[in-house]
């Protein structure tokens, strides 16, 4: 290939990445300029391919050189990138957890070995559709913003600063009452509770529908109720203290991790309720809570570990 061919190809490769109306002009100018540079480097002699290669290498990758001529608008504005990433990650994670929870809890999955594969395929397809829709939405937001410049920014639009470590005591009290009542019902057993509070004899079918599986009630339930009681106690301690510290955040995330693993173990170990569909709904709820809790607690522990040593005054109240 002659040096002139190399320059022609380079100029074409840069120009083809530009808007159509610029291409011919930029290509012609680039060819003329590079030819002149090459002749100057050759110092009056016939330019050789090695000199041409060195010249073009100095000019750089055609894709990057084209960006110097014309920078197209981004698909997602830099200011929206973080929101887009968080939204996409949250939706995709929720979708994966939902598919996993259905696969773990659906009684049909035990009989149909192909069901988990179909669920995964459906989740991937739906996830890709959501990603595509998000991409179009964010591109449209950026395009509208570029074509309709916003007015002067005002500090009035700023959201209030919230301290994530402060515990809202009234809300915490209501939550603790609610969770304690829920745990009491679970620990006593919904069927036994119905039988004891019913003024007349409860229907045997109703009691059978909400009776625990004997193996769950004897082995796994006591561990789970103890862990949940510990979790409520820890939250009550935070409510009394008024705010979380690094140690209490770590304790909370650690306990959440243990509970999440226990929930997933219970779903995989066997039935919770003796009858369907109560068992299916309970296993679905446990798989959903366990998977989300697992991801949330691991990410919290990872975040705390990364922040260690970076915030020397993190636990100081200001």
């Amino acid at each position: 290939m002659t040096p002139q061919d190399m320059i022609a190809r380079y100029a074409h490769d840069v120009a083809r990445r530009l808007p159509r109306e610029m291409r011919a002009d930029v290509s012609a100018e680039l060819r003329a300029l590079l030819t002149e540079e090459l002749d100057a480097r050759a110092g009056g002699a016939a330019p050789d391919p090695e000199t041409a290669r060195a010249l073009l290498a100095g000019f750089g990758d055609p894709a990057l050189a084209a960006l110097n001529y014309h920078t197209p608008p981004p698909v997602i504005d830099a200011r929206d990138t973080r929101v887009f990433g968080k939204l996409a990650a949250t939706i995709l994670t929720a979708l994966a957890i939902l598919a996993l929870s259905v696969a773990l809890s659906d009684p049909a999955a035990r009989a149909d070995a192909a069901l988990p594969g179909r669920l995964a395929e459906g989740a991937i397809q739906f996830g890709l559709q959501i990603l595509g829709a998000l991409l179009i939405l964010f591109w449209a937001i950026g395009a509208v913003r570029r074509h309709r410049p916003q007015g002067a920014w005002s500090p009035r639009a700023l959201p209030p600063v919230r301290d994530p470590d402060v515990v809202n005591r009234p809300l915490a009290a209501v939550s603790i009452l609610f969770w304690t009542a829920g745990l009491s019902i679970l620990a006593a057993g919904p069927a036994k509770l119905m039988a004891s509070v019913a003024t007349e004899a409860a229907a045997p079918q109703l009691l059978a529908a909400f009776a625990y599986d004997p193996a769950f009630e004897a082995q796994r339930a006591p561990v789970l109720w103890t862990l949940l009681a510990l979790s409520i106690a820890l939250y009550a301690w935070h409510a009394v203290a008024g705010r979380r510290t690094r140690a209490s955040r770590l304790a909370e995330a650690g306990l959440s991790l243990v509970i999440s693993v226990a929930l997933l173990h219970i779903v995989l170990a066997g039935a919770v309720f003796a009858a369907e569909p109560a068992n299916e709904y309970m296993e679905f709820a446990m798989a959903l809570t366990g998977s989300w809790g697992l991801i949330d607690s691991v990410s919290t522990l990872h975040r705390e570990n990364r922040a260690r040593g970076r915030q020397p005054f993190a636990d100081v109240t200001v």
Binding site: E29, E37, L55, G58, F59, G60, N68, Y69
Partner: peptide, 12 residues
């Protein structure tokens, strides 16, 4: 000034 910087600058 490098060629790759100056020539596109003129266009801009």
């Amino acid at each position: 000034i490098e060629e790759g910087t100056l020539y596109p600058l003129l266009r801009r």
